[in-house]
Amino acid sequence: MKMFPAFFGTMSIALGVGVLRFAWRRKNRMHSLIILGGWMIILGGLFLWGQVGSADWGIALGTLLFICLAMILLGFNAWPAFVNRDRKPPPAPRTNESQISDQTPRGVCAKHLSAFFLAAPIGGGIAIILTLSVFELLQTFGVETANGIVTTFFLTPFLWTTIATWMVIDTTIARKTTLLFCFAALSALHLAWVQ
């Protein structure tokens, strides 16, 4: 392992995480700039780690290191709150849990199950049709077959995830179903045409 980029890459990532921690909750004009700087330093650290072995291997190791360092800093941050956990509660939450609407358990269950079926089988089917259509487009544009196939391997879960997330977030079922079926129909027409 090349010690120089590994050492300075580690230092850079640690510094970047530290800068993010420093910028946390500071509400002055420099706030955004400091945060941007923090992320830039982290990216610099990942770049250095990319020099340690092959770029992909080094960046993967650098990313794991980034998570570890962030978790350590998080631990330091959490410790005082953990020690003082029996004291007076802090101000009202800024999270948004309270915005959930009240529903009966049966209603919640039905809603979640219907969302699951929309997201899973239907979303999956449409994702595959769209993926096939993109694969044929890639072939048309002369993309190398191996690259096209691997693109589709990633595209299926990516599109499925996007559709699934959208299906469960958008509450206007008619709109999302119509749009999705339009996409699917267009893709199916495209596939029929290229056959």
């Binding site: 915005q99 959930i100 809603k111 997201a119 997330t165 469960v168 977030i169």
Partner: peptide
Amino acid sequence: VTKALSGHSAL
């Protein structure tokens, strides 16, 4: 945000 949270819970 409410819709997203509801979707997050559902998934």
